[in-house]
Amino acid sequence: MTDPAPSPSRPLWLRLWPLYLIAGGLIAAWALGLFDYLSLETLRQQQASLRAFVEDNLILAIAAYIGVYTATTVFMIPGALWITITGGFLFGLAGGTIATVIGATLGASLLFLAARTSLGGFVRKVASGYADKVRSEFQDSPMAYMFAMRFIPALPFPVANILPAILGAKYRDYAVTTALGIIPGVIAYTWVGAGLGATFARGEDPDLASVFQNLLPAAIALGVVSLLPVAWKKFFPKKANQIEEAA
């Protein structure tokens, strides 16, 4: 018996459906005016109604918050900072941090999985020059590189979500580094949100610039520390190989 002829591959425009979904989400958010709601002024005006809703429907409010954060991450909608602050305002430091980490990790995971589909092949071609330069080093120490991507704020969050997928990262490593790597930044801005009620009561605005300036040195330090295994392998390859073989 002869093997059946292989089915023709789908055309590129059809295989890029994840890209259309993301673009559609962005367009829908813009058409509905959602960007206008992601602001400090909206939170100031709606603080009483939001807190009343949380008091009456805590579980539903947490689930809705996680869903909104997931969607915001997947569709790469600008304004995640304000949602993070809102999480602290509504659920406190601990509750807001946990909910934000869950929502951001879920959204990042969906983007990672989308980048593993045919969309990843398209992105890989677009970013082939940069990806080829860092692929070998990345694959030698993927966890270190992914932690550095999360700690150092120079790399946009959507890029840090997609790039590991096209560089061949394992999802388990990606999920761990995402959930743990975003915690410092999430705590910083959730803390701002947790104290926002008192800030509003004084008629003031939170000093976000100061928060970012204080966070930046610590984030860079964490990024440098996370890259130490990469530097060790680069400058002491024989010792690194001996340690890995002994392990």
Rank of each mutant, 00 (worst) to 15 (best):
I152C: 06
V126G: 03
G103A: 14
G95N: 01
T100G: 12
L81D: 05
D36V: 12
G96E: 05
I85M: 02
I220G: 09
Y37V: 12
Q213G: 10
Q213V: 11
T190F: 05
T2K: 14
L113M: 13
I98R: 02
Y174F: 15
S109I: 08
F138H: 09
V123I: 15
G197V: 01
L26R: 05
R44C: 02
P237Q: 00
A71P: 01
Q46D: 10
Q213D: 07
A114G: 09
W17G: 10
S7G: 13
V192C: 05
A114P: 00
G120I: 00
L106I: 12
R116S: 06
M149S: 07
D140K: 12
Q139K: 08
K234F: 11
T2P: 13
L113R: 07
V192T: 15
F236Y: 14
L167K: 13
L60W: 12
F89Y: 06
T105I: 09
G197K: 03
A188W: 02
W13T: 11
G25H: 00
W82F: 11
W82M: 14
L163V: 11
E137P: 00
L40M: 06
E245C: 00
I220E: 00
A175T: 14
R172G: 12
T72V: 13
L106S: 01
P229C: 07
F147N: 06
G79D: 07
K234V: 01
T105G: 02
L58S: 02
I162L: 11
Y20T: 02
I59G: 05
S39M: 10
G95A: 07
G195N: 13
F236L: 13
P156G: 05
L21F: 11
I85Y: 02
T117H: 11
D56E: 12
P8V: 09
T117E: 07
T178Y: 10
Y69I: 02
F200H: 04
E55L: 11
P156V: 05
Y69N: 14
S109L: 15
A108V: 13
N241E: 13
Y65K: 06
M76N: 11
A148G: 07
A5R: 12
P229Y: 07
R10D: 09
L113A: 08
T72W: 15
W13H: 08
Y189P: 01
A48Q: 12
G25V: 04
G24M: 03
